[in-house]
Design a protein around this nucleic acid. Structure first.
Lengths: 340, 340
DNA sequence: AAGCTTTGTGCAAAGCTTTGTGCAAACGTT
DNA sequence: AACGTTTGCACAAAGCTTTGCACAAAGCTT
C-alpha cells in the first residue's frame, strides 16, 4: 500500500492558512501577498506537491486520458501507430490507455465500455477484424464523445478517420508488377467486409485495367489474414492450371506466409513469382529478398489520429468530421524486380 | 466536449430518494426495502450508470491503473511484454498506461514522474539504455509505491524483478555453437553497464570455458545495440586477421544488422559464419536463414511482472522482494547448423 | 397507552481542487 | 475621528462516491 501524497490541505495546515489560499498562491493570484505566495511555493516545492488528477478530473470533468483500442499491440504496424499516438498525446499532456481487441468483436465492445467507464476524454480505434456490426458506436457518437478511427474504419460520415489511400496504392503496386514483367497478377485479400480489403481490391482491379489485363476471378483469394489462411491461399494460387507470376498481398502476415510457401515449393522470388504487398519499413528489409512494398507511414498515422482527436476534445463545437488520407509510398526492392 | 455521464445524484433526484440510498441499493444493502432496491436498479440499468472512477479513486486512494515504462513500444520484444501485462491487468480490472523512454534517461525520469502524478497504483519498468544512475527510484521505493522491473533491472535487493537466466542461456548458446563446429565464437555485446550485457558476457565466457576455448578479447565487441553500431561491430569482427566462424549477438537488432553485413560481404550463414542470438519467435522465423536463438517468453514475462506487481499492490505488508527468473529456450534453426 | 425495538432512509464527512463571494483589518481621506 | 476603499485571506459549493451515525416512523410488548 502506497503512502498518501501531499495535498493542498497538508500545506495549508502546516502553514496555518486556508486551502484556497494555497491553491491561489500556487497560481500567483494577484489578491495574495507576495510573502504568503513565496512561503507556499517553497513548501510545495519541498514537499513535491502536484495537483491530484482525480480531484481535478472530478472538477473539470475531464481526465486528460485518451483510450486506444487496437486489434493487437504486438504487430509492428499497430505498435508503431501507438507510438505516434503517444508522441502527440504526451506533448499535449495526455495519457494513453491501451487495450487490444485481439481481433474479437466482443472484446472490442468490452474494451470500449471499460474505457468509457474510466471516463477517457476520447477514443482512437482500429476496428477488429470480426467487427461487422457497428451499432456499439451509436451511444458513443450520441454522447458526443470524441472518437477517431484509423486504418479499418466505419461510419465515416459521422466519425473522423485516418487512412491511407488504399485504392491508389494498390493500383500503383499492380502497375509496378506489370512494368516489371508480370502478366498474371494475383491478389491475396482480406475478409470481404473490411474497408481495407475492398479498397485494395478496387485499386488492384483498376491497376489491371490500366495495364490492359483482364480480371481473373481465380487470381483473387480472400483470407482471414492469418498465417494459415494465407498459406492455404498461396498454395491454391500456385497450384492453378495457370499459376500467377506475381502475388500482391494485402498485409504483412499474408506476405510472410506467402513468401514461406513459395520458397518451400522451390520457386524463386521474384523470377518465378514476384511478391509485393503492404507492410512497413522494418519488416520489408528484414526478409529475403527484401520486399517491394507500400510502406505505411505508421508513426505519422498515429500522430495524425491523435491530433484529430485532441482537436475534437478541445473544441466545444459539435463534431467536425474529417477524413485524412495519408500518402503511402511504394518502395521498390528486390522481391518484384525480375532478373530475366 | 462530452456530455456528463449519469451519477448517483441524478438517479436519486429522479427517484426522490437520497444519494446514499441509491448507493446502497446498488449493492443490495440489507437495510433497504426490496422495493426501492428494485426501482434503483432498474433506473441505473436503463441509464447505464457506472460508478465514476475519479470519485472512487479519491475515496479509496487508488486508481486501478498501473504505469508501464519501456524503452520503446515498437520493438516486438517490448510490445509483446506489454501484451502480457495487459492480459493480467485486464483480468484483474486494472488499466495500463504506457509511456516510452526512447532509451533516454531524461525521458525515463519524466515518464516516471508523470505516472506518479497521475497516481498510478504501481509501476512496471524496463530501464532505458542510458540509465546508469538509479537514484530516481529512491523516492519511489521510499514512498512504498509498488514497483517491478523486468529485463533490464537494478536495485534488485529492494525491488522485485522478472528476468531470464541470461547467464545460463548465453552459456547454452555458446556451447551450441561449439557443438556445431564453431571454434572462434565472437560476441557482439551491449553497453557494458547493463545487467543483460554483463550476464550474457558471463554466460558466454562460461560457455567458452566449458568447451575448452580460451576467451579472446578481440572477439568481444561492445555496442550501443543500434543497427549502425552493430554493423560497425560486425565488420570489425569480419576483418580481423582471424575472423570468427560464429557470432553470438546480444539482441534482435544486433543480429539483424550482423546478418545483413555478413551477407553483404558475400559470406554464407551458417557455413562461413554461424549466427545466433537472443530474439523472439516471430523474428527468428522471418529472416533467412531462420535464426537459431534464445527466444524470450515475452508474453509470459509481461504476465509475471504484472502478477508480481498486483500482489504488491494488494498486499498491505511491506514490500516483499522477489526475483523471478524465467526459463528461456534455445531453439535450433538454420543459422547455426553448418552443413560442411 | 406508554415505552421499546426494528426498519428504512437521510445526513454528513472524507477524499482533493478550483473559484465566486464575503468579510475583516488596515489604510487612506477629509 | 469617522467614513470609504483597498488588501488579504477564509468560507463554501461543486464534482461523485461510500459509509458510520442519527433519526423518524412503524410495529411490538406489557
Amino acid at each position: 500500500m502506497t503512502k498518501r501524497r501531499v495535498s493542498l490541505k497538508d500545506i495549508a495546515s502546516q502553514l496555518g492558512v486556508s486551502v484556497s489560499t494555497v491553491s491561489r498562491a500556487l497560481k500567483d493570484h494577484p489578491d495574495l501577498s507576495p510573502a504568503i505566495i513565496e512561503k507556499v511555493k517553497q513548501l510545495a516545492a519541498k514537499w513535491n506537491y502536484t495537483p491530484n488528477p482525480l480531484a481535478m478530473g472530478l472538477l473539470k470533468q475531464q481526465t486528460n486520458t485518451i483510450g486506444v483500442v487496437v486489434p493487437d499491440i504486438v504487430t509492428h504496424f499497430y505498435s508503431s501507430i501507438i507510438s505516434g499516438i503517444e508522441d502527440i498525446a504526451k506533448a499535449n499532456g495526455y495519457y494513453i490507455v491501451i487495450s487490444s481487441s485481439q481481433e474479437s468483436y466482443k472484446k472490442e465492445k468490452e474494451n470500449l465500455n471499460n474505457l468509457l467507464n474510466l471516463r477517457v476524454d476520447g477514443l482512437i480505434v482500429c476496428l477488429a477484424q470480426e467487427t461487422t456490426d457497428y451499432t456499439h458506436y451509436d451511444s458513443i457518437i450520441e454522447a458526443e464523445i470524441p472518437l477517431v478511427f484509423f486504418d479499418r474504419v466505419c461510419r465515416t460520415e459521422e466519425v473522423s478517420s485516418v487512412v491511407i489511400d488504399n485504392v491508389e496504392a494498390a493500383k500503383e503496386l499492380t502497375i509496378h508488377l506489370y512494368k516489371h514483367g508480370a502478366r498474371r497478377i494475383a491478389h491475396i485479400a482480406g475478409p470481404s467486409f473490411l474497408n481495407i480489403t475492398k479498397e485494395r481490391i478496387e485499386g488492384y482491379r483498376k491497376g489491371l485495367q490500366l495495364c490492359g489485363l483482364t480480371f481473373d476471378q481465380n487470381l483473387l483469394v480472400h483470407t482471414n489474414m492469418s498465417i494459415e489462411g494465407a498459406a492455404v491461399a498461396t498454395n491454391k494460387l500456385l497450384s492453378l492450371k495457370y499459376p500467377p507470376d506475381a502475388i500482391f498481398g494485402v498485409n504483412d502476415t499474408v506476405i510472410f506466409s506467402a513468401m514461406k510457401e513459395i520458397k518451400r515449393k522451390g520457386l524463386k522470388i521474384p523470377d518465378d513469382v514476384a511478391l509485393v504487398g503492404f507492410t512497413d519499413e522494418f519488416h520489408a528489409t528484414v526478409v529475403e529478398p527484401n520486399l517491394t512494398a507500400i510502406t505505411h507511414p505508421t508513426f505519422e498515422i498515429g500522430q495524425e489520429a491523435a491530433r484529430l482527436l485532441l482537436n475534437e476534445i478541445k473544441s466545444d463545437k459539435a463534431r467536425t468530421v474529417q477524413q485524412i488520407s495519408m500518402q503511402a509510398k511504394l518502395i521498390e526492392r528486390e522481391s518484384s524486380v525480375k532478373l530475366k
